[in-house]
């Protein structure tokens, strides 16, 4: 059963990883990923932070679906997703994803799969605070293409 959490405060990846490792169930591989709020926008303008609006209930469900799908797709994989909401300053961790599998390939792929889907399907609305003003942003074409590649072939 995947562990999924939404957190308003600082996300401490080292603690999240420790917690995930403590839940070990005989897996031989653990892959973790930390996404950090970037200090610049896509077009290079300085960004002080982000505001992530969320829909209580629906947002958690969107994260849980993605984590559960990765566990089902990469058999024997255990998944964890921790995501920030609200104000996130540039340089702070915004998302933590971990996957544990019997062997490394599945763990790498499960983490990659979860991140690609989170980037397009997680129920968040993101406002970027740029030094020249605030703007609501949407997934890029690249984000959509990254998610799409998992529809093309099933590894197992």
């Amino acid at each position: 059963m995947a562990e999924v959490r939404l957190e308003p405060g600082p996300l401490e990846p080292d603690r999240a990883l420790r917690e995930f490792l403590d839940g070990a169930n005989g897996e031989g591989a653990v892959v973790s990923f930390v996404g950090i709020a970037r200090p610049a926008s896509r077009d290079g303008v300085a960004v002080t932070g982000l505001y992530l609006d969320h829909y209580p209930g629906m947002t958690e469900a969107s994260l849980a679906t993605i984590a559960a799908d990765s566990e089902a797709r990469f058999g024997g994989t255990r998944a964890m997703v921790v995501h920030r909401y609200g104000q996130v300053n540039a340089g702070e961790a915004i998302v933590f994803v971990a996957a544990a599998s019997k062997h490394r390939r599945s763990a790498f792929e499960a983490a990659d799969y979860m991140m690609d889907r989170l980037k397009t399907e997680a129920a968040f609305w993101k406002r970027e605070h740029r030094i020249d003003g605030a703007a609501w942003i949407e997934p890029t074409e690249q984000d959509r293409a990254d998610t799409q590649r998992w529809s093309e072939a099933c590894p197992e």
Partner: peptide
């Protein structure tokens, strides 16, 4: 009932 803009993802 809610209205939501396109998701921006995480």
């Amino acid at each position: 009932v809610a209205f939501v803009p396109p998701l921006s993802g995480g």
